[in-house]
């Protein structure tokens, strides 16, 4: 793993990996404010403007579905410049149909998380391929256009992806379309140095996209981009997948539990004198608790 800083970047050429949320349950819930078709037309205009900014710019679109993820569009692979939008829309339609067919009856009642961890992992693999391609390559970044709530089950996978992105210096930008903030994407943008934005008015999505997310990484330093309004660093516990702000940590494997346990469900260690470390005595200092 060579540090990405040593790589020779071309200054202002970007590789933009756009992850769009195609979760039907989410789009159904905000039908009144922003329909999926309107969203797609905004995204199309945005992608076109990116490609127009620099002829070497590259755009890859990955759909984050409810049951699967897939590559939808790759500007470096498509031959015909004029039918970009058509091929993209056609591929997207196929994907949505396939995604729907994978849907099982019994899982429909779930609130509907989309598979962000999968699409992030795919995007990072693609970026690694670009890194491997040679010393001169576009500077990559990831933009998540996400609306579905966070899936607690994906916590570990998303964190792994975030750290990998941080290590290869790939910023993860996030634009939240849903009603709630996403703790995962807040952390992703904070850790990787990307921009986190939750637009007030979804009608003007294109304006948000083009003013905040269109600039290349080099020019970013000259702009006043939105600052994070506090990052939610809470974790979700392993036992109930609840988000907690205080919990118990297994000293062996660092698993998080919301209640006191006798045995760690992850690593199988049996907890000995739990009272001693229970921190029920708040003034207990580390140095004094050692005497065995």
């Amino acid at each position: 793993m060579t540090p990405a800083a040593s790589k020779l970047y071309t200054d202002d050429v970007s590789l933009l990996m756009v992850l769009i949320d195609t979760n039907p349950f989410f789009w159904n819930s905000i039908k009144s404010t922003l329909s999926f078709s309107k969203f797609i037309s905004n995204v199309l205009a945005f992608l076109n403007s990116i490609l127009l900014l620099n002829q070497l710019n590259q755009v890859v679109l990955i759909a984050t579905g409810y049951n699967s993820c897939d590559y939808i569009f790759d500007s470096s692979a498509s031959q015909n410049q004029n039918q970009r939008a058509e091929s993209l829309l056609q591929k997207l339609e196929e994907f949505v149909e396939k995604d729907e067919s994978l849907c099982r009856e019994d899982s429909v009642d779930a609130p509907g998380f989309s598979l962000l961890s999968g699409s992030l992992s795919m995007a990072l693999c693609y970026i690694q391929k670009v890194f491997r391609s040679g010393p001169l390559h576009p500077r990559p970044r990831i933009l998540c256009l996400h609306g579905s709530p966070d899936g607690p089950g994906q916590y570990v996978a998303i964190m792994n992806a975030i750290f990998s992105a941080q290590r290869s210096m790939v910023p993860v930008d996030s634009c939240i379309l849903g009603a709630q903030h996403s703790a995962f994407l807040q952390q992703a943008s904070y850790i990787t140095g990307g921009v986190y934005l939750k637009p007030q008015l979804l009608d003007g999505l294109f304006q948000y996209l083009s003013t905040v997310f269109a600039t290349d990484l080099h020019s970013r330093s000259f702009l006043q981009l939105p600052k994070p309004v506090g990052v939610d660093f809470r974790a979700s516990c392993f036992c109930h997948k609840n988000t907690i702000d205080m919990g118990y940590i297994c000293s062996v494997c660092l698993s998080i539990f919301c209640k006191h346990q006798k045995k760690c469900s992850t690593c199988g260690s049996v907890f000995g004198q739990s009272q001693a470390q229970d921190s029920s005595t708040p003034d207990r200092k580390r140095k004094t608790s050692v005497d065995k």
Binding site: K227, P228, R234, M246, G247, Y248, S251, G272
Partner: peptide, 15 residues
Amino acid sequence: IANLIKMGFPQRAAE
């Protein structure tokens, strides 16, 4: 010795 350690996850305040 394996132990459960109580820990807190603080939130980062806004800039």
